[in-house]
Each structure stands twice: as C-alpha cells, then as structure tokens.
Simulated assay, not measured.
Amino acid sequence: MFSFFKSNPTKKLTKRHSMLLEQAMQAQRRGDIKTYSLLTAEAEEIFAQIKTINSPDKNS
C-alpha cells in the first residue's frame, strides 16, 4: 500500500558507482594510475551488485 515509502536499494549503489567513476577519471587525469585502477575495480564490484539486485530471479 505504501510502497513509495520503501527505499530503492539500487539508488544508493548507483550514486556510489557514479561517484567512484568520477574520482577514477580525475585520478587518471592526474596520472595516478594506481588509484585509478583501485577505484575502477571498486566501481566494477558495485556495478555487479547493482546487476544482481536488478536481475529477476528466473528460478522462483
């Protein structure tokens, strides 16, 4: 009934993912490749979580 009060679990993850990609881009521009690779790897993990949450369970 009050589904609009429920929080969207992917909204926070999507925001974090975007922020990490932005930080990674800035690190790459500065020439800090190590930080760039760490931030990109973390962003990929978050994207995998988002993908898992959004994918419907086909078995149930």
Rank of each mutant, 00 (worst) to 15 (best):
A48K: 12
K15A: 12
P56A: 00
Q28L: 10
A43E: 01
I46R: 05
H17Y: 04
T40R: 12
P56Y: 00
M1A: 12
N8E: 12
F5L: 13
N54I: 15
E45Y: 15
R29L: 05
Q26R: 14
A27N: 02
S7F: 14
L13Q: 10
D32K: 00
E45C: 10
T52H: 03
G31H: 01
K15P: 04
A24P: 05
L38M: 07
Q23E: 15
K15R: 08
Q26V: 13
N8V: 08
I53A: 01
I46H: 06
K51H: 15
R30L: 06
A24R: 02
A24K: 01
R30A: 09
A48L: 09
E45G: 13
K58C: 01
K6Y: 06
K58M: 06
F5K: 10
R16Y: 09
E42D: 07
I53S: 03
E22T: 13
Q28W: 03
K6R: 14
K6H: 12
L20K: 00
S18H: 13
P9K: 02
I53T: 02
A24G: 11
Q49D: 09
M1K: 08
S55N: 14
P9T: 06
A43K: 03
H17Q: 11
T52D: 08
A41T: 08
K34L: 02
N54T: 12
S18E: 15
L20I: 10
K58E: 02
L21P: 04
N59I: 08
N8T: 06
S3W: 11
A27H: 02
Q23M: 15
D57C: 09
L13Y: 13
L21N: 10
A48Y: 05
D57G: 08
T52F: 06
M25N: 10
I50Q: 00
S18M: 14
G31W: 05
T52A: 12
F47S: 13
K11P: 06
N59V: 03
Q49M: 05
T52W: 06
M25G: 04
P9E: 00
F5R: 11
L39Y: 01
L39A: 04
N8D: 13
K34R: 07
A43F: 02
E44A: 08
Y36V: 02
I53P: 03
T52N: 09
S3M: 09
R16I: 12
K34C: 01
S37C: 03
M19F: 15
R29I: 11
T14S: 02
F47Q: 15
Q26H: 11
L20N: 03
T10F: 01
H17I: 13
T14K: 09
E22C: 09
A41I: 00
L21I: 05
R30W: 05
I50W: 03
A41C: 07
K15H: 10
S7V: 14
G31T: 00
F5E: 06
K51G: 11
E44C: 08
P56D: 01
K12Y: 04
K6D: 10
L13F: 05
N8W: 04
T40C: 07
N59P: 04
I33Y: 14
Q26W: 10
A41P: 11
N8Q: 07
K6E: 14
S7N: 11
T35H: 12
A27R: 03
